[in-house]
Amino acid sequence: MPPAIRLTDVSKRFNGVAAVDALTLDVPQGSIYGFIGPNGSGKTTTLRMIMRILLPDQGRIEVLGSADTSAARDRISYLPEERGLYKKMTVRRLLRYYGQLKGRTVAELDPVIDDWMARLGMDGWGDKKIEALSKGMSQKVQFVGAVISKPDLLILDEPFSGLDPVNAEALKDAVLEIRRRGTTVVFSTHDMTTAERMCDRIFMIFRGKKVLDGTLEDIQAQYGFDTIRLRTADGAAALSEMAGVQAVNDYGQLQEVRVAGDPQAFLKALASRTAVHQFEITRPSLHDIFVRIARPGGNGGPS
């Protein structure tokens, strides 16, 4: 089975600056693929090239088995980061319009629209104008607009940003439901927890280059068990000026620490300073990996 998306040595430059640099990537069909990376790293540019909104300066892009991505246009849906809705249109008219542009008829669309609106708690909102909707409601309308054509590939740019927990949960369930129906889902996010929990595979782009690509386990395995998650009576203060401590990520009640040398010796030294309630040798979280790569002076990828 060919991948849903195949990028081969794709580059894109803006005013001489490489936004995407020699990127090669396969997105398997039926997967949920998470694109992560700091702001300005090239995520949106990559998504726009997949959608053929932008054309690459070099390289080859195949979508749903075709290098002519415009041919597959009706089988792909895209939710941009900045939500594009006509303020003066009613919800139903807008959804019909977006669905018709994907080659569906009004007769096909209306039951699907009703179904999605009911599923996302928007019953009775069809005749409301977009300008009357809250931000969260507008985002849900935009999401419905992207899925009513029953695409084979759904590309979502920051789908959960700005949503309250209830709406984010509803959208998360909707994405999983769509994947269960066989749609490949690609989404970009800054929320590492969401990426860890939802994505089959994760891809990280940094300064236009691919720095991570694989399952969460694959990625974490590249870093090994180099993280100690601990909870002590004195919190982060207990770690002050301790020998062997390379980095501390303080969450208040809990700290994640990287140490050089033997973790058991570190535990012994720590126990002599404070009461240790929790001591867990673990792999780094995706958040931690992200920060290690993307922070100023970061290493740009696993060693």
Partner: peptide, 17 residues
């Protein structure tokens, strides 16, 4: 201009040339 400012054009270009 409305379509450009609210990025509706990105959605549309994903569907039509």
């Amino acid at each position: 201009i409305e379509e450009k400012m609210s990025r509706i054009s990105e959605v549309l270009i994903g569907s039509v040339t």
